[in-house]
Structures are given as structure tokens and as C-alpha cells.
Design a protein around this nucleic acid. Structure first.
Lengths: 120, 120
DNA sequence: CAATCATATCAATTATTATTGATATGATAT
DNA sequence: ATATCATATCAATAATAATTGATATGATTG
């Protein structure tokens, strides 16, 4: 049976995957980048201009988003344009719903309202 | 007009609030705690037992979740039982949807596909 | 009230991440 | 080819957060 808190269970794998994504998007600067990209693709210069971040820091955060697969990019002459990877955003959203909102933990070994130690 | 990337805008405030929540739940241990609490309230002993975490570390993470308002607790003799604050979870979910999925950035000063620097 | 149990707090350490400054790369224009 | 522009990378530092060990608190039991 699929369990929440058991080593190696599918639910735990999903939970850890979600945790990794959330670490990436929980940075306010990166979240702003994602938000900005909702209205279409932008070059790095626009992104760091809009957010008031130094260029290298912007690149650094974009790399994190790229590595997580949350954005894609294309080169256009001197410029590089970034876009949302909407498929990956959807996947992240699905994971969020499954882990945070989805049914109960599934761990039958621990029942609500019945403290294990209370029995002893 | 409500903007994404402008100082003090409502969207930015929401974005920062979301960022704070995500920092709390992006820790795998805390995410496991939340997941475990989906099947009802649990005492600290069950939580640290189920996750295999030391008692003090579990308390530490529970404090973070409490401070963020994501869980509530009640004392029951020697035990303390924690539960999800489902209202707050719903609010977090709403924020997530608004910031991540909601309409575009709203920042008219920067238009998709048109690099500011390109004009110069 | 002394002992014990469940939980919380605190200080110290370790680990992780963000930020900065300097430099490299890859493209275009002169 | 050289200069310049846009972006990326790298090393160093600064800032944050997780973990540990020791101790405190609050409740219960004998």
C-alpha cells in the first residue's frame, strides 16, 4: 500500500520531489521571475531590469530555474529569451495538490487521535 | 494598476507572502509532518516516531509550522496534539494559484517579446 | 514532593543558499 | 580583428536554515 511516511514509498518520493521544486520557487526573486514570465518570454536584460537585480545574480537564479526545468530559453543574437515551461509548472501544481491536498497520509500504522505511547 | 514586479504592489505582497509559506513547507521533514497530519491530529511522539526524527528536531519543525499558522495544537495531559490548520492551508493554496497560475504579471511597462535594450 | 514522562527551548555547530565581484563566453558591429 | 554588448560562470563571502546536545518546563504518577 502506498504510504506517506514509509521509506521509499511512492508518496514519499513525490513529497521529496515537491520539496525540491518548492525550494526553487520559494525564493522571492525566482518567484518574481516566474511571475514576470507569465506574460510571455523575456530577455535577461528585461528580467534583471524589471526586478532590479544585478545581471549575474539574475543569471544565477535563471540557471536554478532552468536546472529545475521550470523555464526554457532560446538565443536570439546577443540576447537570450526565457519562457515558462508550462508543462513543468502544471506538473509541479499537480504534485502540490497530490501531496498537500490529496487524501490522507495513508500510513495505517499510525492512527489519528491514538497516541502510540499512550498504550504503554 | 496591480503589478507583479513593482515595489509595494498587491501582487508583490502576495508573492512575498507565498514565498514565506513555501520556505516553510519546502523542507521535506515539515512537508512530511503536514502530510501525516492529513489523516488527523497526532501527538509529537507519534510524529517523531513516524518520521524517525529526534524529538527536539520535531519540536523545532512544529514550531516553524505553528509560527506560520499552518498547524494548531492542544495539550492533553502530558501530550500535545497537533492538527492541520485547514483554513491556512486553503489560504496558502489560493495564494499559490493566484501567484503561480493566475493571469499575467500585469506589468505593462515590460512587454513580452520586446527587449527594452533592443530599442537603444 | 520526588521521579518520570512528553514536549519545548536554547546555544553551538554544521550545512545550505544567496549574493557579490571578477572574469569568461558568444554574438554583433565597426 | 577589435571593441562592445548580453549573458554566463566561478570563487569568495555573507546570510540563513537545519541539526545536535544539553537543559528547562509542565503534567502525571507513586
Amino acid at each position: 500500500m502506498e504510504e506517506c511516511c514509509t521509506n521509499g514509498s511512492l508518496k514519499l518520493q513525490k513529497l521529496i520531489a515537491l520539496s525540491e521544486y518548492l525550494k526553487i520557487i520559494s525564493d522571492a526573486n525566482r518567484l518574481q521571475i516566474l511571475c514576470l514570465l507569465k506574460n510571455g518570454e523575456h530577455c535577461v536584460c528585461n528580467i534583471h531590469g524589471a526586478l532590479g537585480l544585478p545581471q549575474n545574480l539574475t543569471s544565477h537564479h535563471l540557471k536554478a530555474l532552468r536546472d529545475a526545468g521550470l523555464v526554457t530559453w532560446r538565443r536570439d543574437g546577443k540576447w537570450v529569451h526565457y519562457s515558462l515551461n508550462t508543462d513543468r509548472i502544471s506538473y509541479l501544481t499537480k504534485l502540490f495538490e497530490q501531496v498537500i491536498l490529496g487524501g490522507d497520509c495513508g500510513d495505517q500504522s499510525i492512527r489519528a487521535g491514538m497516541c502510540q505511547l499512550q498504550k504503554a
